Simulated scan of single mutants.
Amino acid sequence: MRRLVKYIILFMFACVGNVAWAEEEYREPSCSPDSSYVLRAPEADFLEKYRKDAAFDYTMNIEEAPSVWEWIKHWILERLFRVKDSEGAKQTMDIILKIVLGLFALGIIYLLVRNRDKFLFRKRGTDFSPEDSVEYTGEQEADSFVRLLAKAEQEGDYVLAIRVSYSALLQMLDKKEVIHWEVSKTNQHYIYEIRNETWSHRFEEISRIFDCVCYGEFPVDEIAYRNIKRYFTEFRKEVEG
């Protein structure tokens, strides 16, 4: 019995010794005070600091530069009207600018159509000298228009003949002080300027024919020209009395 107890005690000591030896075997060796190895750990906000730095943000979407149209709207809103650049303000300004540009374009088209005779009128290759202006400039005498009209009729250019006849009427009305010719005035101005109501209506009718033929490119043959010429002749006789 004593031997059994002795063996049990010896067995227990052996087991305890083996456990202690295993722990000693796998225990991490400590660094000596004079070692050159220093274990360092990053600061707690190390990664957060770089996350907040835009220079290291490679996922950022690069916005395109604003177009010229957007820059103009932005400049008008903030510099002229002192309005905050919001989405609603941009949409309103977009509509206003398109309306203004549309009106400007219509104005340019009107001026081109109104004065196109100055650019396109000589496309038929007439051989008039520079001083023989078909349009009345406030300086020509009646004889110059008589000569131009005879040449246009002889060549069968009836559109040109109607244009010359209309300029001759303006010259006659200006000399008789029925109208006061100015380069900036339109035919409509002269219609309102003629005080004689009958003459005003007659001149309005002739002006409508002139616009249709010269600006509306209404075809005119010899028969049509004779009928139109009658309006000019009768009106001239009535005014000259």
Score class of each variant (00 low, 15 high):
L4N: 10
L4S: 08
V5N: 09
K6T: 08
I9W: 11
F11H: 05
A14G: 13
C15I: 12
V16M: 12
W21E: 11
A22D: 05
E24K: 10
E28S: 15
E28P: 15
P29E: 15
S35F: 11
Y37F: 15
A41F: 11
A41R: 08
P42G: 04
P42Q: 07
E43R: 09
F46V: 13
K49C: 02
K49V: 07
Y50R: 06
R51A: 13
A54D: 12
F56E: 03
D57I: 05
T59Q: 09
E63N: 05
S67K: 10
V68N: 10
V68M: 13
V68Y: 10
W69K: 06
E70V: 10
E70I: 02
W71L: 15
W71Y: 07
I72Q: 12
W75P: 01
L77T: 00
L80F: 07
V83M: 09
S86R: 11
E87Y: 12
T92F: 14
M93L: 15
L101M: 13
G102F: 03
G102V: 03
L103P: 01
F104T: 08
F104Y: 10
G107K: 04
I108W: 08
I108P: 06
Y110D: 13
L111R: 10
L112V: 14
V113G: 04
N115Q: 06
N115R: 12
N115L: 07
D117V: 05
D117K: 03
D117T: 10
L120V: 14
L120F: 15
F121C: 04
R122A: 15
R122S: 11
G125Q: 02
D127E: 15
F128G: 04
S129L: 12
E131W: 09
E131F: 07
D132C: 07
D132E: 15
S133G: 11
E135C: 03
G138H: 01
Q140M: 13
A142E: 13
S144D: 14
S144F: 04
V146R: 15
L148S: 09
L148A: 01
L149D: 13
A150Q: 12
K151I: 14
A152R: 11
A152W: 02
E153I: 00
E153R: 06
Q154T: 09
Y158Q: 05
Y158M: 06
V159E: 15
A161E: 05
I162K: 00
I162M: 06
V164L: 00
Y166L: 03
L170Q: 04
D174N: 07
K176V: 04
H180D: 07
E182G: 03
V183H: 10
S184Y: 05
S184G: 11
K185F: 00
Q188Y: 05
H189S: 06
H189A: 08
Y190L: 00
I191L: 07
I194M: 07
R195M: 01
R195I: 02
E197Q: 13
T198P: 02
W199D: 05
S200M: 01
S200R: 04
H201T: 04
R202A: 08
E204L: 00
E204C: 00
E205F: 06
I206S: 02
S207R: 01
D211F: 09
C212Q: 12
V213D: 01
F218S: 10
D221F: 01
D221T: 02
A224M: 07
Y225P: 04
K229M: 01
V239H: 00
G241K: 13
